[in-house]
């Protein structure tokens, strides 16, 4: 008998702590499959964020550094610069990445750090109990937007995949979902593509994965999954927003012209 399906070796054989209907587990699996595919597990260093994904090290069978809330891309920058041979990924939620960690994600992306960021967007702060996130839909009720998110007061949900695609350092940016078999197959493809960019040293790659949070949304797993395909994909369209290995660093500035003439005071000061 032929075995056609098995647990990726990069994923530990343990039950997860995720709620029923949560899609973190599915996304974890896709990431682990990509790790297996490229054979990078033994040189992978994961950077865990704060939120439901903090227990990364409990599920991925790789070395992990835990970052302060929102700072995973900065921590990953330090890891990758110190160990350029390693494969470095962060796994962050929407509060972590798109609110408190906005500066870190934008600048790591803009520097073109050779890392892969998996961004899970479930439109809420799941771990802390379902508060409003930067990605919360207009009208969506959460524990801190009990009347629904108000565009006039709270702004509108941030589309991170599109936003980051604007930056010069970003080689690849895509949004995926795992709500249907078709979308899941496509998500698998995109995540692998994102990994390939780093494996080939071609710069920063970004995956935004739409995900459910039935607990915080106060719906059943099935209803949660339906919300992805309905409301969420309408606002957060799936697809690639950037797919290029063409980004090149700026040319170096011209060499400074030597000042002719008399004793140069600033130069003297430097020498002394």
């Amino acid at each position: 008998m032929q075995q056609v399906f098995q647990r990726p070796v990069s994923l530990k054989d343990v039950p997860t702590h995720f709620c029923p209907g949560c899609q973190h587990g599915t996304i974890h699996r896709l990431v682990a499959e990509a790790m297996d595919e490229f054979g990078v597990r033994e040189r992978t260093i994961g950077v865990a964020s704060v939120g439901c994904s903090v227990f990364l090290y409990g599920y991925f069978d790789v070395d992990v550094v835990e970052a302060p809330h929102g700072r995973a891309p900065a921590v990953a920058t330090g890891v990758k610069r110190a160990r350029p041979d390693s494969f470095v990924f962060t796994y962050q939620g929407d509060g972590d990445l798109a609110a408190i960690g906005t500066a870190e994600i934008i600048h790591a992306a803009n520097r073109g750090e050779d890392i892969t960021v998996i961004f899970v967007n479930n439109t809420t702060y799941g771990m802390t109990g379902g508060q409003m996130a930067p990605t919360t839909m207009v009208g969506q009720k959460t524990s801190t937007s009990p009347y629904g998110r108000d565009h006039a007061k709270d702004g509108s949900p941030i589309r991170m995949a599109e936003l980051l695609a604007q930056l010069g350092g970003v080689a690849f940016s895509a949004r995926v979902a795992v709500n249907t078999p078709k979308n899941l197959m496509d998500a698998r493809k995109q995540i692998k593509k994102a990994f390939r960019y780093q494996v080939e040293g071609k710069g920063f790659s970004f995956i935004e994965a739409l995900s459910t949070c039935p607990t915080a949304w106060g719906v059943t797993p099935i209803q949660a999954n339906e919300r992805i395909g309905g409301e969420m994909i309408d606002y957060f369209p799936l697809g690639q927003f950037k797919d290029t290995a063409q980004w090149k660093p700026q040319p170096p500035p011209p060499a400074p012209v030597e000042q002719p003439g008399a004793l140069s005071f600033p130069e003297f000061m430097n020498e002394i």
Partner: peptide
């Protein structure tokens, strides 16, 4: 490696990451 970070917050977390790999930073 010298990185001018986006902020002091960014810089200290880069230090955290580099240090976790065992280098002096």
């Amino acid at each position: 490696e010298f990185i001018q970070a986006e902020s002091e917050v960014g810089a200290i977390n880069m230090l955290l990451g580099a240090s976790a790999t065992g280098v002096r930073a």
